[in-house]
Design a protein around this nucleic acid. Structure first.
Length: 497
RNA sequence: GGCGGCAUAGCCAAGUGGUAAGGCAGCGGUCUGCAAAACCGUUAUUCACCGGUUCGAAUCCGGUUGCCGCCUCCA
């Protein structure tokens, strides 16, 4: 039985979708005004695995993730500027060019991380009529009021306001700065529609004049459109619990009168060497920089390593990023990849040979069964990927033990191991995508033939006990990023990533 | 000031009442011409600190200290 930590009510609950076998998931997507950073990676890798696991359990999942390209201001005060427009002003591009550029950038990075694309990726700017419609309904039923072309949500009209983050309006007011010349009835009221000043880019006609939608509104409108009045799961970053998610609830429930989401899942933040990551703190790490090995990294971070690193902690725990931590993740992942690719390689050989078919030895059955028991128990416990990886590591130790015993392993031993790696390691966790291509020995490119020739020549030198020359070749290849491993069955090579 | 969370070995990190997963690093060994990888063994009598509840607590309760997030934009 899958259990999840529901932020709404702050408790662990059994997971039961509204319709058996169908799960509607809405995850807050990025605001596309810059390249994605390692915080995005944590969020979207975590939710990717959640969606993969729900699918693995046999559910039909509809995964909706918005792209916010309008309305997200740099500041909630009246003088705040739209983030996308600000970037457009700075770069001399059309706002939609900015949005397109960083939407593409986002998906490039997510593809690299083996994050599956959502089923629907609606854009805020493409859903203006839906948003206007929601504002009209909120005005009609008394949850909103208009002042000078601005429309605000009246939080006092929604008794449950703040129920997700556990706040009440009176507490909030103390925390709000005193806004000068505010048109709001209550400082906690938030904008649904904003009047566009002269020269404002990205504006639309509405019943209240020319303007643009408020930040939180797009999520409510698009979730309603594609998933109906009540979502099974709404996910997002912890930092958005208030006000963004509480505002979404107020808007959506204000319109539909039905619960907005059954389960709220919040993923925790990334810190860098113990400190919050922020642009103003100068410790901001984009994914492109991480993949390229820019400081503070001293080497390229393989996307799969970042993915493994993220999944090695719980999505609800903060994750501390450092070059050192990445290094140990890389070595840990290498071990699993190595074992998996060895199994795949042996399987290939075994399929091509006509060796006798033995039964599956008890030890192999036991290994696989134990992994499954550990893995499903971990994942059922609020998607505990760290614990699931613990099981996969234990399994890998047993696989290596089997491999290092030497001797032939027939199909009936190799196949169940390969299958469970593929189903759990790749299909659910998505960390083994690169493993199949690690062993490049069988390639047919000229480069690979050349490497093969060098390796064979070195073998002859070793046989002739010319170790100085042989070691020299190994060092040279190492400098070129080719690692050699001398084993009992000859020398293997692979690219050091 | 208000709300929420965290504190587990040298490092990262699971574990929320039954006697400390896993990874990295370290140490000893097997293998190797050497190296790398892999394998075997080993590494927290103890979970920030002080009290309490319990047959039993890292896990529950109270307090102390430290750190973090949100309340202003952030995944």
């Amino acid at each position: 039985m899958l259990k999840v930590k529901n932020s709404l009510g702050n408790s662990i609950q059994g997971f039961k979708p509204l319709r058996e076998g169908f799960v509607g998931v809405y995850i807050c997507g990025p605001t596309v005004y810059g390249h994605s950073h390692i915080g995005h990676a944590k969020s979207y890798v975590s939710f990717d695995v959640i969606v993969r696991y729900l699918t693995h359990l046999g559910n039909r999942v509809r995964y909706v993730q918005n792209i916010t390209d309008v309305g997200h201001l740099t500041d909630d005060a009246d003088e705040g500027e739209d983030k996308v427009i600000k970037k457009a002003r700075e770069t001399g591009l059309e706002p939609m060019e900015v949005a397109e550029t960083y939407t593409n950038s986002y998906f490039d990075d997510m593809d690299a991380l083996n994050v599956q694309r959502p089923d629907i990726t609606p854009k805020a700017s493409g859903h203006i009529p839906e948003q206007i419609d929601m504002v009209s309904k909120l005005l009609d039923n008394g949850h909103a009021y208009e002042v000078n072309g601005n429309v605000y949500y009246d939080v006092s009209s929604f008794p449950d306001y703040g129920k997700l983050s556990g706040r009440n309006i009176d507490d909030l007011v103390d925390g709000f700065r005193v806004e000068k010349r505010s048109e709001k009835k209550n400082p906690a009221d938030f904008a649904l529609w904003k009047r566009a000043e002269k020269g404002h880019l990205m504006k639309w006609n509405s019943p209240w004049g020319v303007g643009f939608p408020g930040w939180h509104l797009e999520c409510s409108a698009m979730a309603l459109k594609y998933l109906g009045p009540t979502l099974d799961i709404h996910g997002g970053g912890l930092e958005n619990m208030f006000p963004h998610h509480d505002d979404e609830i107020a808007q959506s429930e204000g319109v539909t009168g039905e619960p907005f989401a059954k389960y709220w899942l919040h993923n925790n933040m990334v810190t860098v060497e113990g400190r919050k990551m922020g642009k103003s703190l100068g410790n901001f790490i984009t994914l492109k920089d991480a993949f390229a090995g820019e400081p503070p990294l001293d080497k390229k971070v393989r996307p799969m390593v970042l993915r493994y690193f993220i999944l090695n902690s719980h999505y609800r725990s903060p994750l501390d990023f450092s070059a050192h931590a990445i290094e140990s993740a890389e070595k840990g992942l290498n071990r699993i990849e190595e074992a998996y690719s060895n199994i795949c390689e042996r399987l290939q050989i075994s399929r091509n040979s006509t060796g006798e078919e033995g039964g599956v030895p008890e030890t192999v059955n036991e290994m696989v069964d134990n992994l499954k028991i550990d893995f499903y128990a971990a994942m059922d416990d609020d998607f505990n990927t760290a614990s699931a990886l613990g099981g996969l590591n234990k399994f890998t130790r047993n696989v290596n033990k089997l491999l290092s015993q030497g001797g032939e392993l027939n199909l009936s031993v190799l196949q169940p191991i390969e299958t469970v790696y593929r189903e759990l390691g790749e299909n659910v966790l998505g960390i083994l995508r690169d493993a199949g291509t690690r062993k490049q020995n069988r390639g047919a490119t000229i480069e690979e033939e050349l490497i093969r020739t060098i390796v064979e020549t070195r073998e002859e030198l070793r046989a002739a006990r010319q170790f100085d020359l042989a070691d020299n070749l190994r060092d040279k290849l190492e400098d070129l990023g080719i690692a050699l491993k001398d084993g009992a069955d000859g020398t293997e090579w692979e690219r050091a990533n």
